[in-house]
Design a protein around this nucleic acid. Structure first.
Lengths: 235, 235
DNA sequence: TGTACATCAGTGAACGCGCGTTCACTGATGTAC
DNA sequence: TGTACATCAGTGAACGCGCGTTCACTGATGTAC
């Protein structure tokens, strides 16, 4: 007998196993990379026969999609958490958020590569991945909004943005960042791409033999980026 | 009989076939991605038996290495070519160079992903890939040197860089960019990571539904970056 | 120039492996009365 | 509370496929004299 609203034993076990499959897949992906992720290997480790996995995920791609969504959600959580501490204004928060993102990337390099590295060949991300991906970006956009609202980020600026760029920025503003002017959005995109570029360079080995103190380098870069963000001046 | 200095028929055919194998591998990689690159499939297309490829490349990884090196060289050539046109000073040259790099990335997205995307799982790049990779960065470093030499980039600046960052920058300066002060090198790294971040975002789909006119967006971003590079002020 | 030998390219079969997915099935859990 | 039936999880075998690499071999090209 099952009380209304309560989950049945079967449903609970199902949820647990679904999670266990995802966890195992994530750990294996950390060893072999996303493109070599194998349903059979996951099944083996979970202790079931390979065909049984199909009760939980209809295909390998569906499992990959679940991992991608989880990765975005996990990163978004970390970034949101870092953004809640509002002391020190935009520059301080920017530094906290970007540090948190980098820390997450270092702790979960394969998850990072999965979502911000080269796309998995042969895999086409479905629309389900859009909202969790957006959640990450919203942290930065909210930061901009707060900065503009508090006046820390100067909202009136003579500099204009080329027409086609303005059109795109306007659409973004209407949807996600009301009151944030073009040039602030534009600077936001600058530092945002810069941050991911820096993390990718670090994680993918492009600063090897150049930078040795990665922590100091990242902090310095992001401090400059933060200054750029609020004032348009980097150093 | 073989005249001294002249290449034997065998050597010429060997060089041609080596090239053909690489070309085929590159084209296949563009279809299936680097991690799914298969020696057997390449051999099939070239029209030889799979084991014969081992006369040319001792392993799949060796073939991958050759592709990586070729990709760096090809990009370096494009970037160097773009940098030769010195009209308009640093900002104009910066724009030309970054446009050329982006154009190359768009024309060869899988080569781009191969060298600037997530590393191929299970593959460890040997030291041979360092010089060609460096060649690309040298284009940017030379631009900085020229800018400092001509006075377009202000070399004296009160702002200092944290000690550990300074140590790393000094080493880089000694090796590749004499006379370029810390804060200029630091800004150089900012715009350099930003450029790769922007290209990666565009190519890997992270600006999907946000930016529609990618050309205009990239130009605008790189114009700002160029201004930042010479003056420390973005807009 | 001509011959004898060494080098090398390419063949074809084989080793041992792993993969995603389908399918008919058994047995356990859940539901309706 | 007890029984009959429906739903679902997991099994095990199979399909058809591709992979990297090794090895003994044939036959062509290159070299030394």
């Amino acid at each position: 007998m099952t009380a209304a609203g309560a989950t049945t034993v079967r449903a609970r076990v199902r949820a647990e196993l679904t999670q266990e499959i995802k966890d195992t897949a994530r750990r294996q992906m950390a060893e072999v990379g996303s493109s070599a992720l194998s349903l059979r290997a996951v099944a083996r480790e979970v202790g079931m026969v390979s065909s049984a996995v199909y009760r939980y995920f209809p295909s390998r791609d569906a499992l990959l999609t679940a991992l991608i969504i989880d990765a975005y959600e996990s990163l978004a959580e970390v970034a949101e958490e870092a953004a809640t501490d509002k002391r020190g204004g935009v520059t301080a928060r920017w530094l906290r958020v970007t540090r948190a993102i980098r820390r997450w990337a270092q702790a979960n390099p394969h998850d990072y590569a999965l979502i911000y590295g080269s796309p998995v060949p042969g895999y086409r991300a479905p629309e389900d991945t859009v909202p969790p991906a957006l959640r990450v970006s919203l942290v930065a956009l909210d930061l901009l909004r707060d900065g503009v609202a508090s006046g820390e980020v100067a909202a009136n600026d003579s500099s204009t943005v080329p027409r086609p760029v303005h059109v795109d920025l306007e659409r973004a503003r209407d949807q996600f960042a009301p009151d944030v002017p073009d040039h602030v959005l534009s600077r936001g995109l600058m530092v945002w791409t810069q941050m991911f570029g820096t993390i990718s360079f670090e994680l993918f080995g492009h600063l090897h033999n150049v930078i040795h103190d990665y922590d100091a380098f990242f902090d310095h870069q992001m401090r400059q980026a933060g200054r750029l963000l609020v004032s348009g001046i980097a150093d």
